[in-house]
Design a protein around this nucleic acid. Structure first.
Lengths: 207, 207
DNA sequence: GCCGCTATTATTCAAGCGTATAATAATACG
DNA sequence: CGTATTATTATACGCTTGAATAATAGCGGC
């Protein structure tokens, strides 16, 4: 009964691997298919190790959720350039891989379905949502100001809610049925819709 | 060890009760918390009965998903009146209870998260999505025609995708964080956004 | 090159899972 | 009113689950 050989992973790396394996399993097998054993197999370790890095499976899953939100919001919050470019990029990034793909929405949906069940996840969700919308709202404030349009807080809030809804909705459509759309179709629709909403060009003619 | 008394439910009623209990459990405890035993308790029967009405738990869950989609699309597909009123109603219904509430999105998300896992659910989803978008597309075609605007298929398709995205996105926002919005705020934003998108009034001044 | 620390494996456990089966209570029918 | 039918309960079974525990292999410090 020989014991299997193994190597000790560098500081913090194993944790990340386990979180990544958790997300892989959730996206492939769903939340109930993401068992400690399955996750361990995916990470190339044995099941017991999970509890060496996390207090419980639930805690690991919660941290995995943080990672999902980060992957969905990080890119969009790092856009650079003039306000117009940033707005355009913000929209495009959210409708392009890797943000927009079937794995992302599987993960997002899995966690959303737990928001009512687990208050800890609800808290993580709310933080992420507000951060995302605030990013968009500030971006819109800069954009409207640059265009010489009214950019009071209330106006920006309404625009942020609307465009956030539009982008999220198109994101869902694209993730769930990407094959029903032509290449770039969703982004084109998003851009022209945003222009119509804001009543201003956002320079889509450039591309 | 006396056997518990019971009553025989009328034809077909028990089935419906079990499906409803399934949805209650999924929305409250998530997909993994919706066990046969928990569902049976909710329905006021014993676990064994599930397999008297369904071939398997999975089949019962799939039928429950059909019920969810129906609850999300039925009301909106039954709007009546002139094209303008129907469009307004379509938007409003989707952003008002019972379509827009936290139970609905929990159920929707739970199933969406399984779409990649279970091809049967994927099929049910796609049917529902296309039916919903087609309803909207026809509605828009009527509306644009009535307004004397170009209503060719391609234009209607793009508008349907955009407005479907907008409404879905706002629906998600409202379901997940209804308390962050003022009464009627999301509907107002949806209406003015739709007007901006279509470049036409949809008579929101009436209300 | 051994030693101590701890990351990792191996094994075990009770609880809960979906399902199968047999007993039985409620109803329909002659 | 008695009997056949079946919807429902009760119980049991084999498996999987998350977690606890004990043994051990790899590695840094001396």
């Amino acid at each position: 009964m020989n014991r299997r050989s193994f190597h000790r992973a560098p500081e913090g790396e194993r944790r990340q691997e386990l979180i990544e394996a958790t997300l892989d399993c959730i996206s492939e097998f769903g939340l109930k298919g993401a068992t400690v054993r399955q996750i361990a197999i995916r990470a190339g370790v044995t099941a017991g190790l999970v509890r060496h890095y996390f207090e419980s499976k639930d805690q690991m899953v919660a941290e995995a959720y943080r990672a999902v939100i980060a992957s969905l919001t990080d890119k969009a919050s790092q856009v650079e350039g003039d306000p117009e470019t940033r707005l355009r990029e913000f929209i495009a990034i959210n409708l392009t891989e890797p943000v927009a793909d079937s794995r992302s929405i599987s993960l997002w949906a899995a966690f959303i379905s737990q928001v009512r069940v687990d208050p800890a996840l609800a808290e993580i969700h709310r933080e992420g949502y507000l951060a995302f919308r605030n990013t968009l709202q500030e971006l819109l404030a800069d954009f409207l100001a640059a265009k010489g349009k009214p950019a009071d807080a209330e106006t920006c809030r309404a625009f942020a809610i609307a465009i956030n809804g539009l982008v999220d909705g198109l994101w869902v459509e694209g993730c769930l049925a990407g094959d029903l759309f032509r290449e770039g179709e969703l982004i084109a629709i998003a851009m022209s819709s945003a222009e119509a909403l804001l009543g201003t060009s956002i320079g889509t003619a450039k591309q």
